[in-house]
Amino acid sequence: MDTLRIYLRSMGILIKGQLQYPVSFFLQTLAQLIMEGGELLAVILLVDRFDHLNQWGPGDLYFFFGLMSVTFYLTECFGRGITGNFPSMVRSGQLDTLLVRPRGILTQVLCSAVDPRRVACMAVGTVSLIIGSRMAEISWSASKALLLAESVFCGFFLILGLFLIEGILCIHSVKSVEIANALTYGGRSACQYPVDVFPRPLRTLFTVVAPFALVMHVPASHILGKPIFGWPGWTAFVSPLAGFVLFFVMTALFARAMRFYRSAGS
């Protein structure tokens, strides 16, 4: 509870700080809106030309896109500490100032940044979800709504976990940390489409290693009434938990890596 209070207070301070430059803040938010709008436009143009992707119709595709967009940018908004600044904090030694405070490192990293501009991206994602839901004629029920919320929530931790990889590589002073982007940004670009579009190696990658399919596609396909992989309905509630599993594995690896942490600068 106490930790949550610190998180909220930190967010308050950071947002207050960002609003000190209102014009810049507004322009950047607008830019985010247009950027995510551009991504959506690409999907619309593809739907316009190809009409469907395997068994997935236009509504399904907008729904998958919206789910990824909302989840990914929710993470980039509230998990900005990990998705954005963390590697540079390791490299510059700024992490030292967090290490001398009596709180968990990851908690403090999460408290160190927020990116409210991403709300614009989430808005685009929400619109896409709504359009998709209308076009696919989803009959909503409490359990389906719950499933959607679970998917977004677990997706948040999945994406945080994937972004942690870059930080862990940084602590071990690996040079080519950009490789981690293949899983994070690559995962976003790929898995805004349902995973069964991809050939087996990619499908395995996004199911087992970076389980976007388990966290998003299994529940979403269940909501759309076309279960992917042909799995029974109850699996849709269990499979998103893979996001937590990945997150906890990564936090354990992170804790291990911290023992090798050598702060930069003498």
Partner: peptide, 22 residues
């Protein structure tokens, strides 16, 4: 290295530190 928050009054930083250190 700075540990206080850059864009806000230092009093806000202090009261956040109060919470962090309980």
């Amino acid at each position: 290295r700075m540990q206080l928050w850059w864009d806000v009054p230092i009093l806000d930083s202090f009261s956040l530190l109060r919470d962090i250190y309980r």
